[in-house]
């Protein structure tokens, strides 16, 4: 190994430590006995995790977040499937420009999306509640769903579809009994990614919730109380584990979606 490669390797490992530093603090200090987040560590405890069981407002926020995440991931995925099917199967006028527009939230600062949605809701005199957050999150999830579904649909062999039509299925039957099962892993991946995005999203939820808070908005409020810090760290640890599981599952389904052709033929 040349000397420059050795330096490069040292750099890569150091950088990796920098990238892990904050995330490693979560489990470290959520089991630490002291209320103050500082070194040296003072002993092992599971108190902070037990605390989570008795926070009424936390449970309420969790319930709200689950409602929002489930609804927006389903809505976003349905819209994503429609858009992506159109994009991968047909070639038509206005396709590129309208798709680019639908994908725009990927490159817009979230605060702009949040402010714009809030302005419309206020101007129309609509109430701010969990459903306004669901709509906002659906808008954010849709581009991700399209990107995931595009790879699932583009692996689809058009001859399978033709075979089904030749064998007497109508278009709906073909979609329901041939295409849908083949892209199902992609749909699962999109649902899981959407769910995770929504569960973590703060800015839009912060702008658009009325009195019902979501989990990130609840966590934001907890930051003001130094005494509650270790409990918040414990909550963060739990959320990290949940995200890890959800995203590993989504990765598993995404790979299956990419390989679905091989498993059928």
């Amino acid at each position: 190994m040349s000397r420059s490669t050795k330096y490069l390797k040292i750099f890569a490992y150091t950088y990796l430590i920098f990238l892990y530093a904050p995330a490693l603090l979560l489990p470290l200090f959520s089991f630490n006995a002291s209320q103050i987040i500082a070194f040296p560590l003072s002993g092992f405890t599971t108190n902070w995790f037990e605390n989570l069981l008795y926070q009424e407002t936390l449970h309420e926020a969790l319930k709200n977040s689950l409602i929002v995440a489930v609804s927006s991931s389903i809505l976003g995925t349905i819209l994503g499937v429609l858009a992506s099917r159109a994009a991968t199967r047909y070639d038509f006028t206005g396709k590129q420009i309208s798709l680019t527009f639908i994908l725009a939230p990927l490159v817009l600062p979230e605060i702009i999306v949040g402010v714009a949605l809030l302005i419309v809701l206020i101007q129309l005199g609509l109430p701010l509640n969990l459903w306004s957050v669901v709509l906002g999150h659906t808008l954010l999830i849709l581009p991700f769903s399209i990107l995931i579904m595009n790879s699932a649909f583009s692996n689809l062999d058009i001859s399978l579809e033709e075979a089904s039509m030749d064998l007497g299925e109508n278009q709906f039957g073909t979609f329901y009994r041939v295409i849908l099962p083949l892209v199902f892993p992609g749909i699962m991946a999109s649902l899981l990614i959407g769910f995770t995005l929504s569960l973590d999203e703060f800015i839009i939820a912060f702008f658009l919730t009325g009195t019902e808070t979501t989990l990130p908005v609840y966590i934001w409020a907890q930051f003001r109380f130094p005494k509650k810090l270790p409990t918040t760290m414990a909550l963060g640890t739990v959320l990290l584990i949940v995200s890890l599981i959800l995203l590993s599952l989504s990765e598993y389904f995404r790979r299956r979606a990419a390989n679905s052709q091989n498993s059928v033929l």
């Binding site: 159109a86 994009a87 038509f92 309208s98 639908i102």
Partner: peptide, 24 residues
């Protein structure tokens, strides 16, 4: 056929993105 599929997500984005940005 293409537009029959794309119209729903497209209208959704018009209502929730184009309209709010115009309003802003």
């Amino acid at each position: 056929k293409g537009w029959r599929l794309l119209s729903t997500p497209f209208i959704f984005s018009i209502l929730l993105l184009a309209a709010p940005l115009t309003m802003m």
